[in-house]
Amino acid sequence: MAIIEIRIELKKGVADPEGSNTKKTLESLGFEGVGAVKCVKVFEVELDMGVDEAVKAGEEMCRVLLANPVIQSYTVTAR
């Protein structure tokens, strides 16, 4: 069995209000030196197959459902 990690993030240049609001909140809570904050989504998927096959399946999952290519990019890695 393979476990893959699918990381979905916003493409460069796409506004990330969730990230920037979190940054503001962290700063207002007194955290110092906070730079950019990015909101990223991670799916962990268990697959009953070999690692290479699982990564390929993960990429297909991104194409069919998990990522909108207009605003999001994805990376699939085996764990």
Binding site: A15, P17, R63, N68, P69, V70, Q72
Partner: peptide
């Protein structure tokens, strides 16, 4: 085949 637009999070974040 794949989306060519997106309805993204409101600028206000809420």
């Amino acid at each position: 085949e794949t989306p060519t637009a997106a309805l993204s999070t409101n600028d206000s974040g809420r």
